[in-house]
Design a protein around this nucleic acid. Sequence first.
DNA 1: TTTAGGG
DNA 2: CCCTAAA
Length: 682
Amino acid sequence: MDKLDRETHFPKKFASMKCQRVKVDDSFAPALEDEAVEVQHLLAEPKTNHVSVDGVLCLGKEKSSKCSETNGFSFGFNDGMRRNIGGLHSHITQGPDDLDLGVLDGFLDEVDEVDDIHAANDFSGAYEDFILDIELAQKVSYLDYTPRDGSRLRNSSSESQSPGCSGSSNGAAGMSELSTATIPESESKNGWHNKTVKCKLRRSSGDKWNSQEPGEDSACPTSDDIEDLDELDDDAKPLISLVSGKNAKKVVHAAKAGTSARQKRLRKPTKRYIEELSDPKSKQVMERKSDLSATLKDKRPKIRSHDELHCGSALARTPKDSFSENFNQAIPKGTDEPLHLRSKPVSERRTNPSFISKGRCWSVTSQNEPCQVRAAKFAPKELSLTGPSAQAPFESRPRRGRPKKSLPLSFLESEDDESEDDCVKKRICKKSNDRRKHQRMWTTPEVMKLIDGIAQYGTGRWTDIKKLMFSSTAYRTPIDLRDKWRNLLRASGAQKRKSNKKEDKEKLKDVVRSLPSSVFRRVRELASLHPYPSILDNLSCGVDNPVIHCTNSTDLTGACDRERFCSVQGACERQNGRKKCESPAGSSRENKVVRATSGCVVFCPQFENNLVEPGSGSGVATGSLISWKSVADGAGGACVTSSKPPVTPGSKVKTALGPAIRLIKIPKPRFLRESEAIGLMK
DNA sequence: TTTAGGG
DNA sequence: CCCTAAA
């Protein structure tokens, strides 16, 4: 409904958004969600480049795709892309049925997360096995669909790696020459982006980013990881170390999946499993490890386990087997799971045990964390509390088992999709105390991605960043991103650290050491550009100060060099960390502030329907927050026009943005989301 | 639901 | 990373 309306009103402009919606809103193809996002994202980038070529003022605040709104080419591209996605989508929706889709979902998720493009080659085989596995577990045959699905998988996979999508750059790249302050940033950003993209496309081949930054230091994984590990508490260690990643997750999830069945099923495999793992000398552990890494996506183990399960042979079970057992057991309980899960957003899925068990735990190749989290979380609270009888073993074992880290962790990490780096292992080796039991180490590429995302969307739009930059890594939630950013800020010194604890300082140092200096340079840049609490409230200079309320200087870069314009000075100075919202003299006015969205017409209270046409001069930077006063003043870069104020109603104002921009009146100064803006513009 | 903040 | 408050 709403969606349709919007699209009707902004057929072209938000074509790109539609893509997103297709995946986001549509509960049918969650499986492809990630892929779709990926595709869109990748495709969107070239558009941005194009835009920038046109000299369109397109600040990095908004989705790069939005920039495309300003030119036909982009549109066509975008549209085409959308169609593709749509096709993909429909293709998927015509799948056999829910179960099958569910399977597909899980599989795709896994593949996507692993990001192992090469996996495509193994698809048929893996998939078959996979299907077979499921089939056995559910006693339903879906082999009939295998061929089709297989091809589908391949298609989606190949599409997501569409060669033409390897563009780089982002919104900021399109920034006009006016943005002196951001130009250097843009460059570096682009560079990063390239790297990021490459990483995405061929992560399996190694850490592109790192390899491309020979000059930089070893670029070891992030510090936080170390920090996190450091904070792991001794009690938790055993759990982690004994129950290596997936297995733990699997077990835990399986346990959570059912209630009554849970205990029964869980206990057995868990115990055995744990015991096995708890034996440091156990060859099996090593074997498994190598086995896992060697046969990454091979699902056969599951089948085997399945057989064992039914044959009563439970002797030499590998972690995988254990898992599959649990998995199989858990699944029956909800054959409709897939559907159910599908309709859930990623964020939700994260907390959905069944989802995890489905899409993640059974993935032999990656994402262990989530499960681990669960393990950590449930073990103590639910399991142990339930009594010593059932789950207790699971929980207690690990604990008493081993005091410290080592093997398991590396084992766990070795399966990490994008970081098989040595760095990862290095990081992992540290003591830990913690309640954040499942640490998902941040790899340098990830950090880069995060930084890229922030460069594009600024802070405060974590969900957007998550969706567009971390669509393939389900284990990174918007909150995770934000947390990481906070840590980076501290580590980079961009933010005064409150705690003067020696401990903390040390940790920060480690963090710094673990990342390339370039990263921190970048962080500092962005920190000044995008103040962390990016919300308007923090910037408001008061009702009496009708300055442009911007969330960051990027909003103003179009024409503001941070010092020149009185109307934006307050914000800019704040950016520079000198003064806090200095209020330039100004008459008190109606303090309406809006956030401009690229390609949108901006409505100003006084100038309702005063369309701003594309043209020369400055434009409203995407994402800019604009007060009507600022518009009237033609102030700063965030103004709609460079023409002298006031902009009288009905007058046309030129903007470099291309499509007309209209100010949107919003109830009160606040961060206006794109979707909101669209809604308001209706 | 999403973000800010504190733990 | 977790949890909660606020919006």
